[in-house]
Simulated assay, not measured.
Amino acid sequence: MIPFNKPHLTGKETHYMYDAVSTGKISGNGKYTKMCQEFFEKQYGFEKCLLTTSCTDALEMAALLINIEPGDEVIMPSYTFVSTSNAFILRGATIIFADSETDNPNLDASKIEALITPKTKAIVPVHYAGVACDMDTIMALAEKYNLFVVEDAAQAIDSFYTGKDGVKRALGSIGHLAAFSFHETKNIISGEGGMLAINDRQFADRAEIIWEKGTNRSSFFRGEVDKYGWVDMGSSFLPSEIISAFLWAQLEELEDIQNKRKHIWQLYYDALQDWALATNVKLPVVPEYATNNAHMFYLVCPDLARRTELINKLKAADIWCVFHYLSLHKSPFYTDKHYGATLAQSDHYSDCLVRLPFYYDLSDADIQKITDCIKQ
């Protein structure tokens, strides 16, 4: 069986985990946590980074930081993972789902303005497959209507956006806040794990307090305050040093991991380009303003029947591929809360998109087998 995903280990993970244990501090916010956070701040220009136990936690921190309250409306794509929505639902928000682009699953930025009301508080673009949404349009709307932008960059590590001003920016560095994932299916992993990137200084101090259960513990240990106490709402969002140590081993090999993944992505694209054109199957589209971080390779079949047939044929050949998100506006939890609009593109991707096996240790021969089977 060629699996859909296989976590890649660089070889140093257990060494650094052992080192973390030997320091006598494994509860979090120690040596490896600080090293990882500083790496991201320097590498990608984030104002401040805080590691979390998951991307879900990072999104929940973002919802707390922008003071989401019952009755607030938050605009996001329907074609996304449930965590994107749950983080704001937990604070009492009403989710206003927007449709996807016609040529890729990202939020259609041209549809956002019509959804904005006096109750709208935030826009949450999701950079699907690590490919940037139209951030110029989204940030312009945020400025016009005084809204917050929280980038769901779960899949977008080491990917970039070039704006109309010609400046190339890392995804996650453009919105007020951003959330990343280091789940075992991502490019850089720590099993479970995530990170909140803070790009607006007004949130920096409070983010640290929310991160540590609503206390000013970090300020106390830096000697900035003489008492350590409960000063705000919060939760236990920071990961243990063992998770951070695992992540550090991955970050040391970031360039190698990314080069290999881009090689795999290009092999898929070159092998399937002519076949896809002949069979009315769509391959991934990367807009001119975006880069490709090779998070995944997907196909968009003409219809549900074709996708089901493809998945079954590949499974019979011991190749495991999967469909992806189901439109959240049609979920059992939210269907009676949706404002009623038809989101045709979101539903199309729900029915027709299939993800092919993608992981660092996938060999050229494996890709040849997969693509030959698809074409047959």
Rank of each mutant, 00 (worst) to 15 (best):
K48N: 11
A122C: 11
D165N: 15
R91Y: 02
Y339R: 07
A58L: 07
G194V: 08
S350E: 15
I374W: 00
G166I: 08
S244R: 00
G193M: 03
D270K: 14
Y359R: 07
N312I: 02
V126M: 02
G175C: 11
K260I: 13
A129T: 12
D152P: 03
L353Q: 12
T102Y: 13
L90A: 15
E288P: 09
M17R: 12
G214P: 04
N199D: 09
T162H: 07
V82H: 08
V82S: 12
S110M: 11
R169E: 10
G24K: 08
W211G: 01
F246N: 14
F297C: 02
L115K: 14
S190M: 09
P7L: 10
D103Y: 13
K168L: 11
P284R: 02
P332S: 06
C49R: 00
G193N: 04
P332N: 09
K330V: 07
Y18K: 15
E113Y: 09
L362Q: 07
P7F: 00
V131L: 10
T33V: 14
C55D: 12
N29F: 10
F180K: 00
N146S: 13
L238T: 10
L51S: 01
I138G: 06
A129G: 01
K186Y: 03
E151M: 05
I189Q: 12
V74M: 03
D347R: 05
G24V: 10
Q250I: 00
S236G: 11
Y289K: 09
L251D: 01
M195H: 01
W320Y: 15
I89M: 08
A317R: 12
N293E: 08
P284H: 05
L254M: 14
V300I: 14
G24C: 09
L328E: 13
G234W: 03
G71D: 06
G193H: 01
S363W: 09
Y268D: 04
